[in-house]
Amino acid sequence: MPPNDATSPLWRSTAILRIVTFVFAVVVVFVHQGGYVRPWLAWTILGVMFVWSLFTVPAYLRPWGRRGWVVWSDLGVTAVLMGASAWVLSPQQIVDIVPLVPTVWACVPAVAAAVLGGQIAGISAGLVVAVTNGLTRNVLNTDVMRDAVLLVGAGFVVGLASVTARRSQERMAQALRAEAATAERERLARSIHDSVLQILARVRKRGAELGGEAAELARLAGEQEVALRSLVAAAPPESAADGTADLRPRLQVMATASVQVAVPGTAVQLPETTVTELTSLVGEALLNVARHAGPDAHAWVLVEDLGDQVVISVRDDGQGIPSGRLDQAVSAGRMGVARSIRGRVSELGGTITLDTAPGEGTEWEIRIPRPKARQRKGGGR
């Protein structure tokens, strides 16, 4: 666990709680020792608590001690000391609900478990302490149930705070990485603008002036200039900590002089594997445009985030696909479109539709459902 872990303040509070509760336990023993059956055992238990506190307090204050074996050992030692109180308290003290020797010192393991493992761990440790308390007293009454509710509630609340702190730290780290990536991209953009882009722009301009074969070089230089500018302007394709990625930058880099890409202003988060597949699918659709739509065809890629699903449209103004051409290709054994596009969309759980006609261009519309756990409230175009 790193020294700058977001839960460090919670661990420090746990260590302080152990000290405060130990002092309280000493006072309780001093007040009730006259009624104990074995006062010497009560002080012995306090001695063990003191030694164990000397170990756990520094442990919870240092990264090396914030481990499962320390926390669960703490829970085990606490349960044993609570059980030993059955040989200390008199029968009348049991009836009068006199505190066990560890008293509130016993709540610390539940708090530590919650800081370490979240709500479930905190609740589990709280239940262990509560059950041990009930078994030691051999009674189930309002006071025992009250202590159980407090222990379980403390474990839940502290566990929730622990999980929230860790998530906030992860999001902050991700934001810092994105900021650093943006700053680096801007630095590279300035460098590229001062060198490569200026050369490509000069080649494009001069080639257009010369004409002939130079004009073809000018056209290619212009396409590469547009692609490079799009690459520089695109957001960094970084994966999030939850295994998702933003689809937008993966598609923005496909923009060229003949391909326009329009994406939402906010991130389109999808599972990393889905983003990779969709990027490949759009690339293949654009490759088909370059091969079959005609030399002067233009293409448009539109991404829409509808909340529960993401829609990608790839449209061109080329010559279109004649009716029956795809069926003929399948019959001839050419399964490119059917397998590489339709089949892969089906594997993602999505649907794909084709709208085309001779002389009217082609439009593929891909709809991919977003996993319910990742759906955003609202959504929109």
Rank of each mutant, 00 (worst) to 15 (best):
L270M: 10
I341F: 06
G159W: 13
V275N: 09
T164L: 12
G324D: 13
Q328W: 13
L247K: 08
A332Y: 05
D5H: 14
E365D: 11
V144L: 08
K372Y: 11
V101K: 06
V77G: 09
A267N: 09
W72Y: 09
E304H: 11
P322D: 05
V80H: 03
T164N: 10
L200W: 11
D147G: 10
H298V: 03
D327G: 04
E365G: 07
N4A: 14
Q269D: 07
M172Y: 12
D147M: 09
V80R: 02
P237A: 10
L354N: 01
R367E: 06
A255K: 15
D96V: 01
A241I: 07
R250Q: 10
A59W: 04
V95W: 08
V157L: 03
W69T: 10
P249N: 04
G361F: 02
V253F: 00
A15C: 12
V301Y: 08
G307F: 05
E225T: 01
Q260W: 03
A227D: 10
S53W: 01
T244N: 06
R66Y: 02
K377P: 00
L100K: 01
R187Q: 15
L197G: 03
D316P: 11
G122L: 04
V268N: 02
P237W: 11
A161V: 07
R315I: 06
E363R: 08
R185A: 11
A208I: 09
V51D: 02
V303E: 14
V111H: 03
K372Q: 14
K377S: 07
E365M: 14
L306M: 14
P2Q: 08
V88K: 03
P369R: 08
V152R: 09
V101R: 09
K377R: 04
A240Y: 11
G117R: 14
E209V: 11
